[in-house]
Computed example of a mutant assay.
Amino acid sequence: MANLKILVADDEDSVRYSLKRLLKKWGYEIYEAQDGQEVINMILPSEPVQLMEKKIHVNFIILDLKMPGIDGFEVLEKISNTFIERKPYIIVLSGIEDKDSIVKALELGADDYMTKPFEIHELKARLKAAERHHALEIKDSFILMLSKMTEFKSFETGKHIERVQKFAVLLAKEYFHLIGKEPDISFLYELHHAAPLHDIGKLLIPEQILSKPGPLSANEFEIMKMHTVYGARMLSEISEETMSFEYFKTIHEVVLHHHERWDGKGYPEGLKEEQIPLSARIVSLCDTYDAITSKRVYKDAQSHEFAVNEILAGKGTQFDPEIVEAFENIQHLFKQLREKFTD
Results as ranks from 00 to 15, higher is better:
residue 3 N to R: 15
residue 5 K to M: 01
residue 13 D to T: 12
residue 14 S to M: 14
residue 15 V to L: 00
residue 16 R to G: 00
residue 16 R to V: 00
residue 16 R to F: 00
residue 20 K to S: 15
residue 24 K to I: 09
residue 29 E to C: 04
residue 34 Q to F: 13
residue 41 N to P: 03
residue 48 P to A: 05
residue 52 M to R: 09
residue 52 M to D: 13
residue 53 E to Q: 14
residue 59 N to G: 08
residue 64 D to M: 02
residue 67 M to P: 02
residue 81 N to F: 09
residue 83 F to A: 05
residue 89 Y to F: 14
residue 93 L to N: 05
residue 94 S to G: 01
residue 102 I to A: 11
residue 105 A to G: 03
residue 111 D to H: 04
residue 111 D to C: 00
residue 113 Y to R: 03
residue 116 K to S: 06
residue 116 K to F: 06
residue 121 H to L: 15
residue 121 H to K: 15
residue 121 H to V: 13
residue 126 R to I: 08
residue 133 H to W: 11
residue 135 A to T: 11
residue 136 L to E: 13
residue 143 I to A: 12
residue 145 M to T: 13
residue 150 T to M: 10
residue 171 L to N: 02
residue 171 L to A: 03
residue 173 K to I: 12
residue 177 H to R: 15
residue 180 G to K: 09
residue 180 G to D: 10
residue 181 K to W: 07
residue 189 Y to Q: 14
residue 189 Y to C: 05
residue 190 E to H: 01
residue 191 L to C: 05
residue 192 H to Y: 10
residue 205 I to P: 00
residue 209 I to L: 05
residue 211 S to V: 10
residue 211 S to G: 12
residue 213 P to S: 07
residue 217 S to D: 06
residue 225 K to P: 06
residue 229 V to M: 09
residue 232 A to S: 12
residue 235 L to R: 01
residue 236 S to D: 14
residue 237 E to C: 11
residue 238 I to P: 03
residue 238 I to C: 01
residue 240 E to Q: 14
residue 244 S to K: 11
residue 258 H to W: 04
residue 260 E to P: 01
residue 261 R to E: 10
residue 262 W to A: 08
residue 265 K to C: 07
residue 271 L to H: 08
residue 278 L to C: 02
residue 278 L to G: 01
residue 279 S to W: 06
residue 280 A to K: 08
residue 288 T to P: 04
residue 290 D to T: 02
residue 290 D to S: 00
residue 291 A to D: 13
residue 296 R to I: 03
residue 299 K to E: 05
residue 301 A to Q: 11
residue 303 S to C: 10
residue 305 E to D: 14
residue 318 Q to T: 14
residue 319 F to P: 03
residue 325 E to H: 09
residue 328 E to S: 15
residue 331 Q to Y: 05
residue 334 F to C: 08
residue 335 K to Y: 10
residue 335 K to L: 12
